Amino acid sequence: MHRTRIWLVIGMLAPSGAAAQSHPLARVSWLVGCWERTVQNRRAVERWYAPRRSMMLGTSQSIRDGVARETEQLRLVTYGDTLVYDAHPASQARTQFRAREVGATRLVFANPDHDFPQQISYTLVAPDSLVAVVEGDRAGRRPPQTFQFRRAECGDVDMSPSLRARAELEALYGDLDRADEQAFTARYDWFGAYAAPGYAYVRWALPGSEVTVTDPAALRDIGQRIGTSLAQLRPRAPRYAALMERVRAAGDTAEVLVSGRLSYRFTDDAGRFGTAGREHERGTVERWIDSWVRHNGAWRLVRTWVFSDEVFMDGRVIVRDGRPLAAEPR
């Protein structure tokens, strides 16, 4: 595996209350903010955004002589009760580290299968000071490395165009999350709400087959039809999350790679999917690319390309890109 460059820093905005402490992501919500480390002409700057449901997004930059040299996309994700640190440096494979310790002043992640590092630990020594230790070399040639960070004002942190666009668009995708949980298929209205003149929603149904292109008005009709169909299942406990996987920006334009996951529970009273009266979990996972343009200070959607669509039930994929499948584990 490739070596992963990691600059992880921890702030001190401790959550309160027993309920907050019980959730692993809530226990590290003090990570939100900007932190930096400076050595001679090089700065390592990391920024974490407020957590949304089971995920917390971050970015890291290495800046030398005032120019951003390296960028890393970061995530903290919960899988059940386990907190996972997900690092994706530019031009490298994504690497995950599972939490071994999550405390009020100490955080430890580990991945014994990684070449370097295999463990990352952080100790909060003061409200604005952190000591991070990166260690564990499978080849046994690299000693532990210690780094000291200090809290920084986010307004003083220079961001690349992609990082700045990501920060600005994050709130819009947060609106998408909330809208679709409140009303099924509200995401189609969301596309229309941010659509620029001439916007097109493009869906590739199957590899090599026809492409469906619709405008905002047609999208709303599609959403209403899907909503009517779903209502027959009497779905409960809907959950929707849109993850900005990648952002590429230049000037007043940006492209965002997005994955959206909708899940809900329902009772199969009629026995359409097996034993009558059994409860199921069902949902969809879509991946798409949004093209944005900033006009008069506001981001507007130019085009949406949906290139992957899966339907799952009870943890197994049953439809992929419109084609029914034998159930596959998900």
Results as ranks from 00 to 15, higher is better:
4 T>L: 07
7 W>I: 09
7 W>H: 14
11 G>F: 08
12 M>Q: 14
13 L>Q: 15
14 A>F: 03
24 P>M: 11
26 A>M: 12
29 S>R: 15
30 W>E: 11
33 G>I: 04
37 R>V: 00
38 T>N: 07
43 R>W: 01
48 W>F: 15
49 Y>V: 00
50 A>G: 01
50 A>P: 01
54 S>T: 11
54 S>D: 14
59 T>Q: 15
60 S>G: 15
69 R>E: 13
72 E>A: 14
73 Q>V: 05
74 L>T: 03
76 L>C: 01
76 L>K: 03
79 Y>S: 02
80 G>I: 08
83 L>Y: 13
93 A>T: 06
95 T>Q: 14
111 N>S: 15
113 D>P: 06
114 H>N: 15
117 P>F: 07
118 Q>L: 09
119 Q>F: 08
128 D>I: 07
129 S>Y: 12
129 S>T: 11
131 V>A: 14
133 V>I: 14
138 R>H: 10
140 G>N: 10
141 R>P: 00
141 R>C: 06
149 F>Q: 00
150 R>P: 00
151 R>Y: 06
153 E>G: 12
158 D>L: 14
159 M>K: 12
160 S>E: 14
164 R>I: 06
168 E>F: 08
169 L>W: 09
169 L>R: 11
176 L>A: 13
177 D>A: 07
180 D>P: 00
181 E>M: 09
181 E>S: 04
182 Q>A: 15
182 Q>M: 12
185 T>Y: 03
186 A>P: 09
189 D>C: 01
195 A>F: 00
197 P>Q: 07
197 P>F: 00
203 R>V: 12
205 A>L: 10
205 A>D: 06
206 L>N: 07
208 G>D: 07
209 S>P: 02
210 E>T: 10
211 V>A: 00
215 D>C: 10
216 P>K: 12
220 R>L: 15
222 I>W: 09
223 G>K: 09
225 R>V: 05
229 S>K: 00
230 L>P: 04
233 L>F: 13
238 P>S: 06
238 P>D: 05
242 A>P: 01
243 L>M: 10
246 R>S: 13
250 A>Y: 02
250 A>V: 06
252 D>S: 12
254 A>M: 01
257 L>G: 02
258 V>N: 02
264 Y>H: 14
264 Y>Q: 12
265 R>C: 03
266 F>C: 11
270 A>I: 08
276 A>K: 08
281 E>G: 06
281 E>R: 10
281 E>L: 03
281 E>A: 04
283 G>R: 08
283 G>A: 09
283 G>F: 12
286 E>R: 12
290 D>W: 05
291 S>C: 09
294 R>F: 03
294 R>N: 02
296 N>K: 11
299 W>L: 00
302 V>F: 00
303 R>W: 02
305 W>Y: 07
306 V>T: 13
307 F>Y: 14
307 F>V: 00
308 S>F: 10
310 E>M: 05
312 F>C: 04
319 V>P: 03
322 G>D: 06
323 R>M: 06
325 L>Q: 10
326 A>E: 07
327 A>T: 05
328 E>Y: 03
330 R>S: 13
330 R>F: 11
